[in-house]
């Protein structure tokens, strides 16, 4: 508002468009050139190299990081392969050991069973022999008892028993 007079003067000089007031073109062009030169020097000397360097550095960092990540990924994959291989090896080894142990145990078991069978057989035959002996003895005892009893009975009935006859009679009876 303070420059009312100037404004009026300006309007007088350029009634339509102030843009077509050629009297101040020199002024505008001078200051434009000053502004452009300042911006050009600031940009080309300071700002653009700096930003370019920052961008390049960032690109480098990113590339490095990606390469590193790639490497780590490869390492991890290798480790996984090694792990799987170790696992498979361990598993097959365990299977071998299991089979071996099983076979050994089977062998021991078979041997023990055979031995036990033999022992059982021996014991059985021994027992049978003892039983047979006992039976034999029992038979003898029965014969003696039967003879004695027969002799007593015959004596009690008033007869006179001949030992030979009684023996043969008892023998005949027991066979029957």
């Amino acid at each position: 508002m303070a420059t009312e007079a100037t404004k009026a003067a300006g309007e007088a000089a350029a009634p339509g468009m102030p843009q077509l007031d050629f009297s101040n073109w020199g002024h505008q062009i001078f200051w434009l050139m000053v502004a452009l030169v300042v911006i050009y020097f600031v940009l080309s000397r300071v700002a653009l190299p700096r930003i370019g360097a920052v961008l390049a550095e960032r690109q480098g960092t990113i590339t490095n990081d990606i390469a590193k990540a790639e490497e780590l990924k490869k390492k991890a994959a290798d480790a996984e392969v090694a792990y799987n291989k170790a696992l498979a090896d361990a598993r097959s080894e365990a299977n071998d050991i299991i089979a071996e142990t099983k076979a050994e145990i089977q062998k021991d078991l078979d041997a023990a069973l055979a031995k036990a069978d033999a022992e059982i057989a021996a014991k059985t035959s021994e027992g049978e022999k003892a039983i047979a002996e006992i039976r034999e003895n029992a038979l003898e005892s029965v014969k003696v008892v039967a003879k004695d009893t027969t002799k007593e009975i015959v004596a009690a009935m008033g007869g006179k028993a001949d030992a030979k006859t009684i023996t043969s009679a008892v023998n005949a009876r027991m066979k029957g």
Binding site: T3, T6, G10, M17, Q19, N24, H27, Q28, F30, W31
Partner: peptide, 26 residues
């Protein structure tokens, strides 16, 4: 009116080296 070039300090003509609103906004 908003396009009028006018000196910032004092009145008078706009010379080549005058400090004007053009100078300010540039």
């Amino acid at each position: 009116d908003q396009f009028i070039v006018k000196p910032l300090f004092g009145g008078g003509e706009v010379g080549i080296f005058t400090i004007s609103n053009v100078t300010l906004w540039m």
